[in-house]
Amino acid sequence: MKKAAAKRKESLVEPQSPAPNPYAMAVLTAVLAGLFAVIGGYFTSAFQARHAIAQKQLEYRVAAYSSLLDKTNLNNAQAISQILNIGQMADHIATDGEIQAFEDRIADLLKKQGTHDLYLQLSADLNLFRLHGSGRAQRTCDDLLKALMLRDFEIDWKIYPPDVGEYHEKWKTALENGTAYGWEERVSSDERLMVITMAKLTQLLIRQLKEEIHGAAV
């Protein structure tokens, strides 16, 4: 009986697990540490690469914006500065003399540049924006060229501040109703609306660029 009880007691005792091999644990720890180091290095490198690309894109964008802003000096002979000058005149004309001066300025621009040459020059000036500009600036550049091609009907004015679309509609209605052009009409209504629309979009583009450069510098 005593022997049977002793055997039952021995069977109830759980067998002890062998102690972990110190060498194996050291190897496993080293492998895991190396794996985590590789994973951490990968994510760090990926973050640094994305940051470097974003920084370079920002540098390109600011350089492109600064280049265009340099061409907006009203004393500059660049087409963009002349268009901005016409836009300023359009905002303040009232007398027949001012209207005629406005008409003459548009006629002189189109005579010196020609629509084709004007398109080539503006395309070159705006090309950097189409590569490095913000989505908002890119849309404005595209719409500016649409206006030059007499395709202002393709422009979605709802994406712009209300005053921009209202300005375009005001001039379009005035020209369709035969508003006075001063003493001598020198350009067609389509050409006049084309330049006025381009001027307004150029003013908007310059304002957008200044806001974005200021935002990048903050």
Rank of each mutant, 00 (worst) to 15 (best):
D108N: 08
L12D: 09
Q138C: 05
L144P: 05
T179Y: 01
A137K: 02
T72G: 06
F36M: 10
Q138K: 11
I206N: 03
R136Y: 14
S45R: 08
A199I: 04
R8Q: 11
Y167A: 04
P162C: 06
V187I: 12
A180S: 08
N177L: 07
Y160C: 04
A24D: 07
I99S: 04
K200N: 11
A52F: 09
W157T: 06
S67R: 13
W183R: 02
A24E: 12
L150N: 13
K170Q: 12
L150R: 11
D117P: 04
R130N: 13
D190Y: 07
L35F: 10
L150C: 07
A5P: 02
I80L: 12
K9N: 09
M198I: 03
L58S: 15
L201D: 02
K112N: 15
G87S: 05
N127H: 12
L12K: 04
Q208E: 15
R130I: 12
A77P: 14
L118V: 05
G133S: 03
L128K: 10
A137R: 04
A77I: 10
K9Y: 02
D70P: 04
P162M: 06
S45V: 10
K71T: 04
Y23I: 12
T140S: 09
L209Q: 02
Y65A: 04
L193D: 02
E169C: 05
E176M: 12
I99A: 10
A79L: 15
Q208D: 14
H132E: 05
A180D: 13
E211A: 15
Y160L: 07
T197K: 03
E103Q: 05
L84T: 01
S17N: 13
I53F: 15
S67K: 13
A26I: 08
D117Q: 13
Q121S: 08
L205W: 02
N73L: 08
T115H: 12
S11R: 13
Y60I: 05
K111H: 12
T29M: 07
R61E: 09
A216H: 11
R130K: 13
N73R: 02
T115L: 14
E191T: 03
A24N: 06
P18G: 13
D91N: 15
W183S: 09
N21S: 11
R136F: 10
N177G: 07
V164Y: 09
A174D: 01
P162F: 08
E98N: 03
I206Q: 13
D117C: 06
V38R: 00
D91R: 11
W171K: 00
T173M: 12
T115Y: 09
V27A: 09
D70Y: 09
H132A: 12
Y23R: 12
G97C: 06
R8F: 00
G182N: 01
A49K: 10
E169A: 14
V31D: 00
Q82N: 05
I159G: 01
G97F: 01
R207K: 14
R151L: 14
A52D: 15
R130T: 09
D96R: 06
V38C: 01
V62G: 01
D143M: 06
Y181A: 06
A54P: 02
L205M: 10
